[in-house]
């Protein structure tokens, strides 16, 4: 039967391979005496969750949001604020983060979605900055300098995240859950409408769909999922600052998607892993790593549209002798 699944299956397999490889990172890192790799891999997975959430609106919904890092910030600050109030439970923090993100996303999304194209990019960017400045000037939470957490969150009273390994596996579990949820969602009725709107908003209206409610819903879902990444980012760094939501972060998240290839979920995840890995690698090599990183981005944009997925596809075509 013809449906979306046969076409997605190879990507699903690749995603499972990625999960399996990630799962064996801690024992291997311990074995070769480089426990730092576990920390790096945790960061990779946190940003993979964020990139997956952005892929829902950018890749499937064709909404190029340049303010997605704001939701990373909502997640991180939810941890900071709640732990200060004595609420350390991870699940409660995630719920609160999602609620805050959803509220901000409903309002700003409803306004942003009145526009298209470069307007949408600029408006989402401006709303992201608005959230950024809010936390910068919020002196009770450390303002510009940010604030250190006293301890990592607990899960149902158990200090699961205290160890590097515990944090790693909880993050991995969340990554798998977010991926699986989004994978199902993109195949669902809702996912079809969203993807259809990306392909032709006119056609969708001509068969009786008004795109706005679907786009807004996707925007809110993406915000909530990104807030989860923010909660984990705060736990990983044991520190929260407005820098998490700067527009450079939003740009980086777009970079992850474009490098990995948009609209396939697996590409977003791979792109996040590669980007964070590249950053960490280049940063060890030189303090001016951004120079090299920026050059790579320019070159990819100029010479390899579609990112790595596009590159692989083209190589495949050559190999296929077409």
């Amino acid at each position: 039967m013809s449906d979306l699944r046969p076409r997605l299956a190879p990507r699903l397999k690749l995603a499972l391979v990625i999960f399996a490889l990630l799962a064996v990172v801690p024992p291997i890192a311990q074995a070769i005496g480089e426990p730092f790799l576990i920390v790096v891999a945790t960061r990779m997975m946190v940003f993979a969750i964020a990139a997956l959430s952005l892929d829902l609106i950018l890749g499937y919904g064709a909404m190029v949001s340049f303010g997605h890092a704001a939701y990373l910030g909502f997640g991180a600050y939810a941890v900071a604020i709640l732990s200060r109030a004595g609420i350390n439970d991870l699940l409660l923090q995630i719920l609160a983060a999602m609620a805050a993100a959803a509220l901000f996303a409903v309002v700003t999304g409803a306004i942003s979605l009145r526009t298209r194209g470069v307007y949408f990019i600029m408006i989402t960017l401006a709303f992201g900055q608005m959230a950024f400045f809010f936390f910068v000037s919020f002196s009770a939470l450390g303002g510009d300098d940010g604030v250190a957490l006293r301890a990592r969150s607990t899960v149902l009273g158990i200090p699961l995240l205290q160890t590097t390994q515990g944090l790693f596996y909880v993050t991995l579990a969340l990554l798998v859950a977010v991926f699986a949820g989004l994978y199902r969602l993109t195949l669902s009725r809702f996912g079809r409408v969203l993807t259809g709107t990306r392909e032709s908003a006119l056609r969708m209206q001509a068969i009786g769909f008004r795109p706005f409610p679907y786009q807004l819903t996707a925007y809110v879902i993406a915000a909530c999922l990104c807030a989860i990444a923010g909660v984990m980012l705060a736990n990983q760094a044991v520190y929260v600052s407005p820098a998490y939501m700067s527009w450079h972060r939003s740009g980086e998240m777009i970079v992850m998607l474009v490098l990995g290839g948009i609209g396939s979920l697996t590409g977003a995840m791979a792109g996040a892993l590669i980007t964070v890995g590249l950053e960490e690698g280049l940063a060890r090599w030189s303090e001016h790593w951004r120079l090299g990183f920026g050059l790579i981005l320019v070159l990819v944009a100029l010479f390899s549209p579609g990112g790595l997925t596009g590159l692989l596809r083209r190589l495949n075509l050559i190999r296929g002798g077409k």
Binding site: S2, L4, R5, R184, L185, R189, F190
Partner: peptide
């Protein structure tokens, strides 16, 4: 019916 259904793959309907 509603298209705000998020889990069941539409292809299986």
């Amino acid at each position: 019916g509603s298209s705000f259904r998020f889990f069941r793959p539409a292809a299986t309907e």
